[in-house]
Design a protein around this nucleic acid. Sequence first.
DNA 1: ACCCACCTTCACTCACATAATCACAATAAG
DNA 2: CTTATTGTGATTATGTGAGTGAAGGTGGGT
Lengths: 271, 271
Amino acid sequence: MNDLSNHEQAIELLQELGLKEYEAKAFVALTRLPQGTAKEISDISEVPRTRVYDAVRVLETKGLVEIQHANPQRFRAVSIDEAAETLRREYEDRVDSLRTSLREIEPAVPAENTEVTHEVWALSGGSAITSRTQQLVDESDDEVILVIGDESAYTPELQERLQAAGDRDVSVVIGITEESLRERVQRELPNAKVFASGLEWLNSSAETGDETVIRRLLLVDRNTILVSSFHEDLGEGHEHEQAVFGRGFDNGLVAIVRRLMYTGLLSNVEA
Amino acid sequence: MNDLSNHEQAIELLQELGLKEYEAKAFVALTRLPQGTAKEISDISEVPRTRVYDAVRVLETKGLVEIQHANPQRFRAVSIDEAAETLRREYEDRVDSLRTSLREIEPAVPAENTEVTHEVWALSGGSAITSRTQQLVDESDDEVILVIGDESAYTPELQERLQAAGDRDVSVVIGITEESLRERVQRELPNAKVFASGLEWLNSSAETGDETVIRRLLLVDRNTILVSSFHEDLGEGHEHEQAVFGRGFDNGLVAIVRRLMYTGLLSNVEA
DNA sequence: ACCCACCTTCACTCACATAATCACAATAAG
DNA sequence: CTTATTGTGATTATGTGAGTGAAGGTGGGT
C-alpha cells in the first residue's frame, strides 16, 4: 500500500509544477472523486474548508478544474491526461519563450579576460555532462581516449560523434569494463580500438564503502579531460552525476589523468 | 530597444520555471558573458555580490552553469539551447511522474450524490475548452449545432470529430461569420450544413464597449450546450477564454440557448 | 614577513507570500 | 422561525527569500 506514497508524491509534483500546497491537495482530492463539494474536498484532503474555494478558483483559471455554480458549489477535476497535457503545454511554451528571449539579449563584454589555459570546470546533471562530453569529442583534433564505466553513458549520439571523429582521422580509443557492452561497441565502432578497461580498481566501493562510481573518463588531444562520477546518494533517493572537466596540457589535473590513462590503461591495448 | 523587455522577460520566465530571483538574474547575466566572476555578474545583474555564489551554486546543481574553482571563481552558463533542453526535460519528467502517481491513487467515494441533470459548469483556458468541446461532439448522438465565431476555434482535431459525428448519422450544422472560413469549412465537411451565422449581433462590441466576443456556441442533442467567450482583457495583456457548459434538456440555460439557436440561427439554414 | 585589497562564506534582519484560523453573512432545510 | 451548512472576507501566524553586514580567507605588493 504505497498508495499514500503516490498520493504525497502527486502533491509534491504539483507543487513543483507551480501550484500552492492547498491547490495541489485540492486537485488531488478532486482526482479521487467524480465531483465534490468544498466540504468533501476538505474532508479527504487536509485543506481547511474555507480555503478550498480560493484554491479551486485558481485551479479553474489554470484549466484543471471545472466549477458548477450551484448551492453548494460542486467541483470536478479534468481527466488526468488532460491535466497533464495542460501542464506540459504551459511549460513547453515557457521554455520556448525563454529560448527566444535569451537569444535576443545583446551580449555584454565588460572586460577582455579570456585566459584559456588551466581551466577546471565543475558541472552536474546527466544531461549537462553528456552534452559537454559530446562537445569535447566533436572538438577533438588528434586523439580521443574514453573509458565508459556504465552502459547508460554510451548513447547513440555519442556513438555517432565518435564515429565522426574516427572518420576525420582522430585516433579513437575506448575502454569498457562490462564485457557485453565491449563487444557491442567494438561492432559499432570498427575504427576504434576497444579494450578492457583496467579501471575496475577505481570503482572500489568494497573498500571505501561509498557508492560512488566513475562513469566517464575522457581525454581529448592529451590536453583536455572530463571525469564524471555517479552517486547512488543519501537516503534522498535522488541520484546525481557530477563531473569536472579541465583544459590545458600543463594543467595539473589533466596531467594526472593523462598519466593515469596512458600507463594504467593503454598498456592493455598494445598487449 | 525592447531588449530590456527581453531581458526582463527572460528573468520572469526563469522564475516561473522555478528559479529564484537571484538565480534567474545571475543566469541571464552569465548568458551575456562568455564567462564571469561574481563581481562581473553582480555588476550587470542586480544581484548583491555576496549572494552570487549561492545563486550560481544552485544553478550548477541544475545543470545550467559550470563553475571554475579558481581564485577568483569563474562561472559560465551552458548554451541557451542546452539550458532550454535541460529545463524542458525537467518538467517533462515531472509531468510524466505526476500522471503515473495520479493514476495509482485509489478513488474515494464518500457519498452517492450523482445528480446528473441541471449541471452548469464553468471552465477557463483555451485548451480546456477545446478539449471539452471535442468531447461533447464525440458524445453526440443525434444532432450537433455549432457556431464558430473565430477562425482559431476551428482546428483540424475538431474537424475530424465533426466528420466522425456526421459519419455516424449525427446531423451536423455549423454557423460561421467569416465568409472565407465558411467556404473552407463547407469544403472540408461536405456532410454538414454550413450557413452564415446570424450571430453578429451577439458580438456587439460597438454598443457595449466591451471587448468580449463569443467564440464558440455548441448545442448537442438539444440537451447540452457550451458557450465560450474571449476577452482581449484588461491592460494585463494576457487574453483569456472562458466558458460554461450545461447539461439537461430542462436546464434553464440550455433551454435559452436552444431556443436562441433554433429561432435566431437555424432559420437561415432552410432559407 | 607584513599589510592591504579583494574574494568568499555565513549569519542575520526585514518584508512579503502563503498557510491557518476566525467571524460573519447568505442560503437552504426542517 | 430556528438551525445547520455554505460561502466570503478579514485577520493572524509562519516560513521563505531578498537584502545587508560581519568575519575569515587568499593572493599580490611592499
